[in-house]
Design a binder for these strands. Sequence first.
DNA 1: AGAGGTTACGGGCAGCGTAAGGATC
DNA 2: GATCCTTACGCTGCCCGTAACCTCT
Lengths: 303, 303
Amino acid sequence: MLDLKTLEVFVWIARLGSYRAAAEKLNTTQPALTGRIQKLEARLGVTLFDRGARGATLTATGRTLLDYAERMLALRAEALRHVAADGAIQGIVRLGVSETIVHTWLPLLIERTHSTHPQVTLEIEVDTTPNLRAGLLDHRLDLAFLLGPLSDPRTVSQPLSSYPMAWVARPDLLPKGAAVDQTTLRSWPIITYPRNTRPYMAIRERLARAGEAPPRIYANASLSTIVRMALDGIGIAAIPPVLVATDLAAGRLVVLPSAVTLPPMTFTATWTLTPDRHVAEAIATLACSVAAAAPFAADLPDQ
Amino acid sequence: MLDLKTLEVFVWIARLGSYRAAAEKLNTTQPALTGRIQKLEARLGVTLFDRGARGATLTATGRTLLDYAERMLALRAEALRHVAADGAIQGIVRLGVSETIVHTWLPLLIERTHSTHPQVTLEIEVDTTPNLRAGLLDHRLDLAFLLGPLSDPRTVSQPLSSYPMAWVARPDLLPKGAAVDQTTLRSWPIITYPRNTRPYMAIRERLARAGEAPPRIYANASLSTIVRMALDGIGIAAIPPVLVATDLAAGRLVVLPSAVTLPPMTFTATWTLTPDRHVAEAIATLACSVAAAAPFAADLPDQ
DNA sequence: AGAGGTTACGGGCAGCGTAAGGATC
DNA sequence: GATCCTTACGCTGCCCGTAACCTCT
């Protein structure tokens, strides 16, 4: 009775304010938590939560227990770090990544993770930065690789890789070697990242002209599709050239010299300040070294 | 992984220096502990014990873990005391008692324990004070009611009941009303507690005469047998008269007035300074009040 | 040979997940 | 009626205890 697994359940329900959310966070079901907490309350002979339609809130007794529970869990985490051979880097890490990274060094990270921390299982979710951000704050994700530092006091960020952006198109789309100016760029559809992402915003801002229609931007959440569209000559892609190194080398695509520069895509590893963050931190550290060691990464697979 | 139950197992093996002893203390089997520790070591990827033919001793890593484990267990005990409705007075208490107490207020204590702390199970073992003392120090017992305070730094004692001793015999054994002196006492067999107990020692000392044969003492570990022998007129019993109140009232036995006084039997509740002693302490406290409230207790059942 | 730890194996029970059932706003 | 939590129930998998085995002094 009063085992650490139960206390962990208890703590997460208290933190997130609902059985539902805690069940999701803990990769289990709501009834499982109900059972555990019921048994705990029965054993202690006290009520720990006030259940309402709006979730569960701690009773006074519950708050007392929360304090002890958090101290015990912190102690366990510390013990594991000091005693375990591998610093107890193990378990499931729910990792959210931007698609750009999937196509650069993510495969390498997965490989390195399995060799460096064999006990770790990665659950990878690919999404846009705003959604990843939400996932982090909901505790649906333990770690995310997203665009730009996340300036939220509940999170910690660490810089990863930075990719210069460029205008990329099929060589026959425009006269060879000519630098493209704002007007030329506005005359073609721009193919790039989805709305609400940093690159999208930057392009809109740079190509905006007072009183004129906004540039046509084909926003797309799928990088492969963006490349496909560029290869099909539909428009000018705004992406990091590193993603299409093969196509560039083969001459299927070219980087267009231009005075209109785009800010680089700067990725950070971001995680929340949960007590069990050290596994996420270890993976983030690994990601850092992988990103640094492999700046020019795998090419986009053809689809 | 790294749950408190495993840590408890780990701590007791470390404390007692052997799987065997820990298994006994924890009311389980040795293979169960082997399994737990093996799994723990595998998960941590470290060795915690050096196993030799003379038991198990901690490795350096094991000592590190022991520190954390003890802090976590202490925290749990504290949490239970503060949070649980009944202060977490529950579980199995292995109680060792002197037979005298079995025949006075032990039944009352059992009753009161079940009504006051329904979650507590008593495992009662009847033995002599020296054996009980050994049981305490071996951690085979959590609590013992024994003769005299146990002056060992590893234990704590609290006074319970004190019973005056007297010479008791069948009324026809000696002339009525006559006070018995040392010589008379030496002429009859003395029936009393076993060798190495305090009453036995006191009698030997008081009836010793330089250069003469020692008094005949029929030492007996069974109180019922002592009483039976006294009723059969075999000799003079040295016991607390409260144990034979019925026989005295019925005239089957009488207290012999004598100048040879015996020290009273003073019982104490004694327990060891283990981290989980608070349940034992609660029972000891209960025993105190029971002993105080019922000084003239149940009579010996006829056998 | 005896004490202490390990291995092998069968059985019991805790705890999980699925699915249906309230309660509360 | 939507959102949460609870109840019911079958099942899996862990862990325990028995028994035989190994190893060191």
